[in-house]
Design a protein around this nucleic acid. Structure first.
Lengths: 198, 198
DNA sequence: TTGACAGCAGAACGTTCGTTCGGTAGCTTA
DNA sequence: TAAGCTACCGAACGAACGTTCTGCTGTCAA
């Protein structure tokens, strides 16, 4: 007889856990899990958790609290090749996609969102109403898209250099280059973009 | 003497908690928190948690486990008007922004991500390499940006109608309109877009 | 029809949890 | 200089936690 793979657990268990997590952003204790799953023995919960852990859906903190594992948040990143009309869902390309937040945000405490006003960066694919993910830092490199503070307002522009010093270049020929008098105040550097279309 | 507001706690405490949460997706126990914050009395941790709770950063599950509160994930959506160089952070416009995931994804089980290949939708601000948030559904309205399956590949295009039936229109004059022979297979409708630029 | 095994229940147990309470050191105000 | 407040420590305690072990039931292969 072939070496038998451990039977996968009822996927409903995982879904219920994920729903609970989506609502509370926290993993419940075994006894709550028991209620959630309609199980009356903590020992069995313990066993189920062990298997989810083996499957990569759960993990442990260094303090032995258990937490969502790598696959817990896995969102289907659909392949660009499809077989027989049935799209073949697969884990994100190379990097481990966890949540969109993690994909975009590296340092939560230094990251802000800025809503874009106007069409001045439209050639860079930045539209009115988009949210720019900004990593706050006081300086940037030429070529970066930066969020600067000009006349007490946020502006999203390319950072460039002219003989006179740093300038802010729009990505739209209808808009002028901004040549700040005095110091150019940089709020942060664009790290990503989020747009909602529904 | 004026009624004194409760002193706000060291913001570093909150940041450390948020960083811990970002890493582990779980709220640690009081004793771990004590280590994290460099505090040696659980009783003091308890008091700090109480204040974060009052401030709306922490909350409780119905099972009295404590969890991130409404403001825990609040990402500074910076105002477009700034006072005296000090950007005034504020809560997201009208909706309660929680996480970017929540902002973009309404039905997790029906939502996929599709990576864009090529420049065919560049006039719609969709670039090569962007991730499209797709709500899977078999039909769509004219004018929607849809993800369709053509020749076993995903294509992102506008849905439009000609006398012959439905067609897929690119947002780039250099690309042709796609007139599918037979049924047009729609994978889903675009609900959002995510781009990472760092 | 017997044995092996998987799915579950239940009790027992030591550990860890969060709470409570009493205490101290330093700063303010009066 | 005494009173009051804030930031924090430390011990004690009962409740809740996760683990382990024993046992029952149903299924399936031999």
């Amino acid at each position: 007889m072939a070496l038998k793979q451990q039977q996968p657990l009822d996927p409903a268990y995982l879904e219920k856990l994920q729903d609970y997590y989506a609502e509370h952003k926290v993993i419940p204790s075994y006894s709550v899990l028991a209620t959630l799953w309609g199980i009356s023995a903590k020992s069995w919960v313990s066993e189920c958790v062990r298997r989810f852990e083996e499957a990569g859906y759960l993990d442990w903190t260094p303090d032995r609290q258990f937490k969502p594992g790598a696959r817990f948040f896995e969102r289907r990143l659909a392949h660009d090749t499809v077989q027989a009309g049935l799209p073949n869902p697969a884990l994100a390309d190379g990097y481990d996609m966890v949540t969109i937040d993690d994909y975009l945000i590296r340092v939560p405490s230094k990251t802000s969102l800025v809503r874009v006003k106007g069409e001045s960066m439209i050639d860079a694919g930045i539209h009115d109403g988009d949210l720019i993910v900004v990593e706050q830092q006081p300086n940037a490199n030429v070529g970066d898209i930066v969020v600067a503070i000009v006349d007490n307002e946020f502006t999203v522009k390319y950072l460039d250099r002219e003989k006179g010093g740093f300038v802010l270049k729009p990505a739209n020929k209808a808009f002028p280059v901004i040549r700040p008098k005095g110091r150019l105040e940089i709020f942060g550097v664009m790290a990503g973009l989020v747009r909602r279309t529904r």
